[in-house]
Simulated scan of single mutants.
Amino acid sequence: MKWGMPWPGAELAQRCEQAGAQAFCAGEFADASAYVTATEMAQGTERAVTGPGIAYAFARSPFIHAAAVRHLNKIAPGRIFLGLGAGTGRMNRDWFGVDSSHPAPRMAELVGCIRAFLQAENDQKITFAGDYYSIDTHIRAPVMGPIEVPILLGAFNVHMLRTAGRVADGVLGHGLFTDRWWSEVVDPQLRAGADRAGRDAGGLLRWGWVITAIDDEDPARAVEDARRQIAFYLTVKTYDSLVALHGWQDEVAAIRAEFAGGDPRKIGSHVTEDMLWSMAVCGDTAQATEMLAGRKNLPDLGFLAPPGFLVSPRRRKHYGNSTVESFHQIGVSQ
Rank of each mutant, 00 (worst) to 15 (best):
F177V: 10
T45Q: 01
D300Y: 00
A108S: 11
V167H: 00
L245P: 10
A86F: 02
G170P: 04
I267Y: 09
R199T: 04
L298C: 06
A34E: 04
G130I: 07
V223L: 11
S101Q: 11
S101N: 12
E121G: 13
G51S: 13
L204V: 04
Y133A: 05
W182S: 05
V49T: 11
N157E: 10
S326P: 04
F327K: 03
L234K: 04
Q22T: 13
V223E: 14
D200G: 02
Q189G: 01
S326D: 04
K266F: 03
I126D: 05
D218K: 13
V143C: 08
Q229F: 08
L276G: 07
A192C: 03
M1I: 02
Q119F: 08
C113A: 13
R256D: 10
L304V: 08
L205H: 10
L190K: 01
A293Q: 13
S100Q: 12
T163F: 00
R265M: 15
A253N: 13
R227K: 15
T88L: 08
I267G: 05
V111H: 02
Q14K: 12
Y56T: 13
F259Q: 14
A201M: 09
F29L: 06
S322T: 12
C282Q: 02
L172H: 10
S269Q: 15
V281P: 02
R90P: 05
L172D: 01
L176E: 07
W95V: 11
G83Y: 03
F63M: 15
W7I: 06
R227E: 11
I255M: 13
N321D: 09
H318A: 12
V271R: 02
H318N: 06
L84T: 09
D131A: 13
A59W: 03
V210S: 12
L152F: 10
L82Q: 05
Q22F: 04
R295N: 10
Y319F: 15
G154L: 01
G198D: 00
A108Q: 11
A30E: 15
D131L: 11
D169F: 02
I114P: 06
I139K: 07
C25F: 07
A19F: 03
A197L: 06
A108H: 01
T323R: 04
T178F: 09
A66R: 11
W248D: 10
S269N: 13
P219Y: 12
P313E: 06
T37D: 03
D263F: 05
T50G: 00
T285W: 03
C113G: 07
G262F: 12
S322M: 14
V252W: 03
A42H: 10
A48C: 08
A76K: 05
L12P: 01
L298P: 04
G198T: 00
P264A: 07
G173R: 05
A201R: 03
R221Q: 14
F117E: 10
P77I: 11
V324L: 03
A26K: 03
R314Q: 14
L242F: 06
A222Y: 08
D94A: 11
A305S: 12
A21N: 00
P313T: 06
G331D: 06
R47H: 15
I230E: 04
P264N: 06
D215Y: 09
T88W: 08
Y239N: 12
S241A: 15
R227P: 05
Y233M: 14
A253W: 00
T323H: 04
P146H: 08
A260G: 14
P103D: 09
F177M: 14
G247F: 14
Y319E: 09
I330D: 04
E325H: 12
W207S: 02
F24A: 00
I214P: 02
D200R: 00
